[in-house]
Computed example of a mutant assay.
Amino acid sequence: MVHFGRNVSFIAVVLACVALKATSNPVGHVQVVGGTLAKQGQFPHIAALLRREISGARTFFCGGSLIAPTWVLTTADCLRTHNVGSTSVRTGELDFDQATEYEQLVNAKRFVVHPDYVPTTALNNIALVELSQPVVEIPGFVNSIKLATTRDVLYPGTECTVAGWGSTSEGGATSKKLQFAYLPSMSDVECGADWPERFDSPSQLCAGFSQGGISACGVDYGGPLTCGNNPVLQGVVSYNNGCGRPGLPSVYNRVSNYVDWINSNINNSTLGSTV
């Protein structure tokens, strides 16, 4: 997705909220390409990570997934150049130009980055944002999502869905409304052939089409990939090269590989590598 900002005034963790309009940031990051506009409540787990500017405006910089009332899963890359004090998370977001009663804004309490994260290769590119107070779950509109485990086998060709905010073409104009796209999961062999020097099959997976055209990338980082008839969170958008280019599918962190690490931090907040 491409960055864009929004001036907001919110009372966090209540069902009613007040928000001002979004302002656009320069295009230059890659995004969901070939997507369709989402409906309110279609992705109740999706979260928007926001940075508070000196002016007081809040600027969207990455996606995430609500996995517990006080926890959002995202990527370590998303948090590298940001600090806890200026970061907040908005759930229930659909359109950055139109506020709804489902939106909640909560400040970040701390970042938890995977201890084996390697910035140069995006290996173990996964992180948690602990929230300062719980998000109020609103059934059908704001809900945490189930994490995939090793029992949730992801077979090649399984229909998956990626969601986020951004433009419909590489370098194109932004969309301030939530978008989604359907993508098939890919085999590790096929993904490794497309990313021969970077793909790590135990911790990563690919989804997309060999001919390109539909993709998640750029500021979609941290956003969710859900798969199957009863969707679970299988992937977290990690890296890409361009938007929807042939032979260059999006790469995702494989959630099932990290579920023990995630749960250990959620269940014991003293664990993990914090920044």
Results as ranks from 00 to 15, higher is better:
residue 115 P to G: 03
residue 145 I to D: 01
residue 196 P to S: 01
residue 97 D to C: 05
residue 263 N to P: 09
residue 29 H to I: 14
residue 79 L to P: 04
residue 26 P to T: 12
residue 125 N to M: 01
residue 34 G to C: 07
residue 59 T to K: 10
residue 30 V to D: 15
residue 109 K to A: 13
residue 220 D to F: 10
residue 56 G to I: 07
residue 91 T to P: 01
residue 51 R to P: 04
residue 66 L to S: 02
residue 121 T to R: 12
residue 178 L to K: 03
residue 83 N to M: 06
residue 233 L to N: 07
residue 97 D to E: 13
residue 15 L to M: 09
residue 179 Q to M: 11
residue 160 C to V: 11
residue 161 T to W: 06
residue 81 T to E: 14
residue 140 G to I: 08
residue 191 C to G: 04
residue 270 T to C: 03
residue 243 C to P: 09
residue 86 S to V: 04
residue 197 E to Y: 15
residue 271 L to S: 14
residue 275 V to L: 15
residue 70 T to Q: 15
residue 123 L to V: 14
residue 168 T to Q: 15
residue 140 G to Q: 02
residue 156 P to W: 13
residue 212 G to W: 07
residue 75 T to N: 10
residue 25 N to D: 15
residue 96 F to Q: 07
residue 208 G to F: 04
residue 147 L to Q: 03
residue 233 L to I: 02
residue 133 Q to A: 14
residue 66 L to E: 01
residue 181 A to E: 08
residue 216 A to P: 02
residue 111 F to Q: 01
residue 269 S to A: 05
residue 212 G to P: 03
residue 93 E to S: 12
residue 220 D to C: 09
residue 248 L to E: 11
residue 273 S to D: 06
residue 134 P to Q: 11
residue 128 L to G: 07
residue 211 Q to N: 12
residue 24 S to C: 14
residue 71 W to G: 01
residue 139 P to E: 06
residue 113 V to I: 15
residue 111 F to H: 08
residue 161 T to V: 13
residue 98 Q to Y: 13
residue 82 H to L: 03
residue 87 T to I: 01
residue 172 G to V: 04
residue 69 P to R: 11
residue 56 G to F: 06
residue 16 A to L: 15
residue 179 Q to W: 03
residue 81 T to M: 13
residue 77 D to K: 12
residue 144 S to R: 12
residue 169 S to N: 06
residue 160 C to Q: 05
residue 186 M to W: 04
residue 98 Q to D: 14
residue 131 L to I: 00
residue 43 F to L: 07
residue 231 P to R: 08
residue 84 V to A: 09
residue 38 A to N: 02
residue 196 P to Y: 05
residue 269 S to K: 03
residue 48 A to V: 05
residue 151 R to A: 15
residue 248 L to P: 02
residue 164 G to D: 07
residue 229 N to L: 15
residue 164 G to S: 03
residue 204 Q to D: 10
residue 272 G to A: 05
residue 196 P to L: 08
residue 46 I to M: 10
residue 70 T to V: 14
residue 56 G to M: 08
residue 114 H to F: 11
residue 118 V to W: 08
residue 58 R to V: 12
residue 194 D to I: 10
residue 209 F to E: 03
residue 233 L to M: 04
residue 108 A to W: 00
residue 257 N to V: 02
residue 214 I to P: 00
residue 134 P to M: 11
residue 200 D to G: 00
residue 219 V to C: 07
residue 48 A to C: 06
residue 139 P to A: 09
residue 131 L to M: 02
residue 109 K to M: 00
residue 147 L to A: 06
residue 128 L to P: 07
residue 4 F to C: 14
residue 168 T to I: 13
residue 154 L to Q: 04
residue 213 G to D: 04
residue 214 I to G: 05
residue 171 G to C: 03
